[in-house]
Design a protein around this nucleic acid. Structure first.
Lengths: 364, 364
DNA sequence: CTGAAAGCGCTTACAG
DNA sequence: CTGAAAGCGCTTACAG
């Protein structure tokens, strides 16, 4: 097999301590010895093994990323942002996914022991109790979109309430008064928060909430399609529909199309998530953009701060700001500019897709 | 910090060897001792650290995945397939990406030393030479879409030639005789192979190749858009255009739309990759489907075969079969069925999107 | 400037 | 059935 540090030491006529010091550029060393050791290492193609080093230093230079799933662009963007930032700090990324139930998550948590210096956890199925019990003591952790209260952990969440609020406020500002929402499932936290943002915005505008305008959905394209029936059932009809995710907006638009209702002329439509397909729909979909890679990136940054400044790291909950991406489906602009080009503004809620925000608000 | 094996041994009044044997269910053990050790371990919340175990066993139970990039669904699907299969075999996945040049790849290769039991490499920038020199001797490796000849390594590639051939043959069968292609860049291997498949199919049908029908492109949406000019320049016009990836097909369809040319009535369009957007275009895009998660999954399977049967593992190059997904843009069917539902067949090239193929052809 | 030695947390022949 | 001991490949005080 490959050479180890002893082989190098022997061949260079020095101790392994010296080899280690020289190759790690730590401590003093005679210039001649340095040269010799380097030459020998090169010649034997010696590369230090993480096995020994990790055990010896009790560090792995790796961070773990626990995801509930690996389907779709949401998770791939999280991974991308996390990997990017991890690499910038010379850390590796251990990815783990598909933990559908509690016991699988617990198993995953334990597998991480000795493999990573810190852990980013994204899971709707975990509770503080389970974390406290199963997490190796002292392992730095950042919770992503976990909807966990309490301040024992660092946490970053998507500003669902703010995003939905922003979108509905935008529709209100453009004259809409009857705005329906297609909800997600009751037990889905994102869904509940988006509904809350919708209600808040209406209330602030002095508009009475109408239960008939809150249409059931489950974040699936099919449920968006079916929502059309409900949306058109009541008179007077809503003039705008806010689908609380893009998938439902896709189904909704298909349904409206089949019902012969023109978007945005007869019905304004907006989504949430700003997934790639929104851009390719006809008409292109107005949506709430979430900087998902930013979520992964911030998580790693926060995690490494814990790892590196363990003592005086200050734990906090923060929210990832969302931005509005206006396209044709809401009828508030006239033309969708070229892909990814800025959209002209006429108010502070009008933003470009390019301006990836890295702000986050600290929760009290 | 957390308890280690010594703490458990001490508390249970046995040696660490006994603790190890009992917790790993290896070797004999007195039932009473077993119970006691288990109880103590549970009580101390002892979870063995991979640090010690890895060094001791010289295994990491992890496989590395080296990717050139992390943007888009292609890579996320590779990761998903790989992670799924790795997990099925109780292995972990170490992901590494963004290695744009040779030296970064080499650094990445070395970082893997001692961290993984095997490596899946997907990189257009690597050559056999660099691999031979920088890979730890004896480390199992699988090359993915690397376009590397020679049989020193296990390799899996996408059947670009076959996929393009299939698609063009389909268009021919439906009466098209003037079929244009939008090519990718000359230095892109996928692009070259798809062009080859296109030419083969035409030649087999006895149709003379016409350089004017081979339009320049670079796999970008913009280049597909610009290709419209060339496609319409010559008389008689082609009746079908095969964009050698989906992005270009998207630009192409936008361009045709702006030129007032109806798809598929006046021009049949087909793509390659079967990315998600194809489904949402108007009309939906006919394309060549590549089972990308399957690529990741097969790579892990092959890799673990090497890891586990080092001695008599047989290295081979194989191709991942592609399938045709027919939608409205090629004009050969009349209606796009519900998402992901099977499409009725009228020949062996007509396939459903559900029938994810796991066949692969062994290269001689 | 350099080396001998201990240690990181485990596993595994080898004795008994 | 169980334990003492060596060892995996490194790093790091501690002497000198």
């Amino acid at each position: 097999m490959s050479a180890n540090i002893k082989d190098v030491a022997r061949a260079a006529g020095v101790s392994t301590a010296t080899v280690s010091r020289i190759l790690n550029n730590v401590g003093p060393a005679n210039e001649e010895t340095r040269r010799r050791v380097r030459a020998v290492a090169e010649q034997l193609r010696y590369v230090p093994s993480a096995l020994g080093r990790n055990l010896s230093t009790r560090r792995t230079d790796a961070v773990g990323l626990l995801l509930p799933d690996l389907y779709g662009e949401f998770f791939s963007e999280v991974i991308r942002g996390a990997d990017q930032t991890a690499q910038d700090h010379h850390y590796h990324l251990l990815v783990s996914s598909e933990h559908s139930d509690r016991s699988e998550i617990i198993a995953a948590l334990q597998m991480m022991r000795g493999r990573v210096d810190g852990l980013i956890i994204m899971s709707p199925h975990i509770d503080v109790q389970a974390l406290n019990v199963n997490l190796p003591r002292g392992l730095p952790v950042v919770l992503l979109n976990c909807n966990i209260a309490g301040d024992g952990y660092d946490a970053i969440d998507i500003d669902n309430v703010g995003g939905a609020h922003q979108m509905v406020a935008h529709l209100l500002m453009h004259g809409h008064r009857r705005i329906a929402i297609i909800k997600g499932l009751e037990n889905n936290n994102d869904a509940r928060e988006r509904l809350r943002g919708y209600r808040e915005a209406l209330r602030e505008a002095g508009i009475d909430l109408d239960p008939a305008q809150e249409i059931a959905g489950d974040f699936s394209e099919a449920s968006g399609f079916k929502a059309v029936v409900d949306a058109l059932a009541f008179a007077p009809r809503p003039t705008a529909i806010f689908a609380s995710n893009d998938s439902m907006a896709v189904g909704l638009m298909r349904g409206l199309h089949e019902s012969g209702i023109a978007v945005p002329q007869e019905m304004a439509v907006a989504g949430f998530d700003d997934t790639t397909i929104g851009h390719y729909l006809t008409p292109p979909l107005t949506s709430v953009h979430v900087g998902i890679s930013e979520l992964g990136s911030q998580a790693v940054t926060r995690l490494l701060d814990q790892v590196q400044h363990k003592a005086n790291h200050r734990k906090q909950h923060s929210l990832l700001a969302t931005t509005l991406v206006l396209r044709e489906s809401c009828g508030c602009i006239h033309k969708d500019p070229a892909p990814l080009a800025p959209i002209g503004g006429e108010g502070k809620e009008i933003v470009s897709r390019l301006s990836e925000s890295d702000n986050h608000t600290t929760h009290p």
